[in-house]
Design a protein around this nucleic acid. Structure first.
Ligand SMILES: [Mn+2]
Ligand SMILES: [Mn+2]
Ligand SMILES: [Mn+2]
Ligand SMILES: [Mn+2]
Lengths: 220, 220
DNA sequence: AAATATTTTTAGATTTGTCTAAAATAATTT
DNA sequence: AAATTATTTTAGACAAATCTAAAAATATTT
C-alpha cells in the first residue's frame, strides 16, 4: 500500500487520538489535531476507509484497523528513532527534535531504518521517554502514570513527557527536571492541584497542575 | 522562498543539465531527465520563471538564475552529505545510497545540515567522488577528466564516477575499481575505444568505452 | 417531543502537478 | 523558398488535498 505523507500523518493522529486503537475518534477531534477543516477530514476519512486503514460508519467516528495500527506504529518507530539520532549523534537538544523528526518519519527505506536502529544500538525510548516500537510494532515498556495522580509520600522516577513542545521542555529545563530524575512527593494542594516534590538532589521544587499532568512517572 | 520537493528536483535537474549554469537547457531535455511529458515541463518552467529560479524565453530554452543556482547547490549539498552519512556511518554500499539521498535531500532544517556536516567532519566529496558544496555553495575540488580522454602512458588516480546507477557501480566492484585507485594506461584501442590499465596492485584490467567515459580521473 | 445546538457530511471551488491531443513555432531538408 | 519534420506551447482534463458554505444527521435542552 503506497500512502502519501498526508495519509501517514492522519493515520498517526488517529492512532494517538484513539489511545492506540482503544476508542473511536470524532471528525472534529481529528480536524483539531491536524489543523484542518472538518470537511477535509471527512474527505480523508473516506479515503483511509477505502484503503482499509480505518473502519468508518458515517456520523459515528472512526476506529483504526489492524492494518492502520501497524502503519501508525512504523511511522512512530521512525519518528522516535530519528529523534534519538538527533539528540545522541547530532547534539540536538530535546526541544529541537520534533519538527525535524516530523519530516524524517516519512522517508521510505526499510534498510535505512534497520541500519539506523543498529547504529543507535536498538534504543527502547526516545528523548522524551516515549517507547520505540520494534520492527513488528511491539512496545516493551512498562506502564507509566501522570505525576498528578501520585499520592503524597510516593517515591518515583520521571520517565516521560506527555507534551513535547519546545515551550514545555524549556520550562522543565528551567526547573531542573529531566528524565530519570528521582523524587518523593511532599505536598499536593487541593485547591489548584499544585505539587511540591523533593528531588534526589535534595532540592525542593514546586509544580503547577499544567506541569504535573504532562509528566509521566513510575513508582519505585 | 518556499519550494516544493518537485520544484527543487526540477531546479537541480536544470542545474546539472546546464553544466552548472553554463548553457541553456531545452524543454525536451528536462522532460527526458525528469521522466515527464514536455507539456508538464512547460508548465513548471513558467512557474520557476515566475519565482525567478530560471530565465526563460519562450521557445528558446531556460537558463538557471543565480538564485536557482544557489538553491540547486544547497539541495546537492544535502544529497551528498546524506550519502556520506549513509556510507560512513550506516554501512551502506555506494550503490545503495542514491535513492534514499534523493528523499533526504528535501528535508528542511538548516540546523540539521550544519550538525550533520559537523558530525561527518566536513567531508569534501561524496561516496562517488562528487564534490560537496559548502554552506555558501562553493566547491573546492580541482578539475577531473574522463578516463577515456587520457593518453597511453599516463599515470592517474580514479577520483569519481559520472554514473551512480547500481548496475554501473556493481560492475566496477566486479572489476575491482574503486575511488582512489592508481593506474597507468597501457593501451587504448582505436576501433572500439577500449582501454587496458595496469593498477597499482600490478593487476591488469580491460575497460570498455562505456566504463572509461564514466570514470573521472586526475593525472599524477 | 419539540426546539435548539452541535457535529458531520456534501456541494462546489481552488491549487499543484500531472497527462494527452492539438496548435504554434522553429529547424531542417528538399 | 517551400515543404517537411521536430520542438514547444496551449487547451482542456484529472487526481490529491485543501477550503467555505450549505445541508443533513445527531445530541442536548427545554
Ligand atoms: Mn516527536
Ligand atoms: Mn509527519
Ligand atoms: Mn546521488
Ligand atoms: Mn530529489
Amino acid at each position: 500500500m503506497n500512502l502519501s505523507f498526508t495519509e501517514e500523518n492522519y493515520i498517526k493522529a488517529i492512532y494517538h487520538l484513539s489511545d492506540a486503537g482503544n476508542k473511536a475518534v470524532n471528525t472534529n477531534t481529528i480536524a483539531d489535531e491536524m489543523n484542518t477543516a472538518a470537511a477535509s477530514v471527512s474527505d480523508m476519512i473516506r479515503k483511509l476507509s477505502d484503503k482499509d486503514m480505518i473502519v468508518y460508519k458515517k456520523y459515528h467516528g472512526v476506529n483504526i484497523s489492524d492494518q492502520g495500527k501497524s502503519v501508525a506504529l512504523q511511522v512512530i518507530r521512525k519518528h522516535r528513532l530519528w529523534e534519538v539520532f538527533l539528540v545522541e549523534k547530532l547534539n540536538f537538544h530535546w526541544d529541537e527534535v520534533h519538527d525535524v523528526a516530523e519530516q524524517l518519519e516519512h522517508i521510505r527505506s526499510p534498510l535505512l531504518i534497520k541500519r539506523l536502529d543498529d547504529f543507535l544500538e536498538h534504543p527502547k525510548i526516545d528523548p522524551h521517554g516515549d517507547p520505540i516500537p520494534d520492527e513488528n510494532g511491539n512496545i516493551s515498556i512498562g506502564p507509566q502514570y501522570p505525576l498528578l495522580d501520585m499520592k503524597i509520600g510516593t517515591n518515583g522516577v520521571i520517565t516521560a513527557v506527555e507534551n513535547s513542545t519546545s515551550k514545555f521542555l524549556k520550562h522543565l529545563d528551567n526547573k531542573g527536571i529531566r528524565l530519570g530524575i528521582k523524587f518523593v512527593i511532599k505536598d499536593h494542594d487541593e485547591f489548584d492541584d499544585s505539587m511540591q516534590l523533593e528531588l534526589e538532589t535534595g532540592e525542593s521544587i514546586f509544580l503547577s497542575k499544567q506541569v504535573s499532568e504532562n509528566l509521566l512517572v513510575r513508582q519505585i
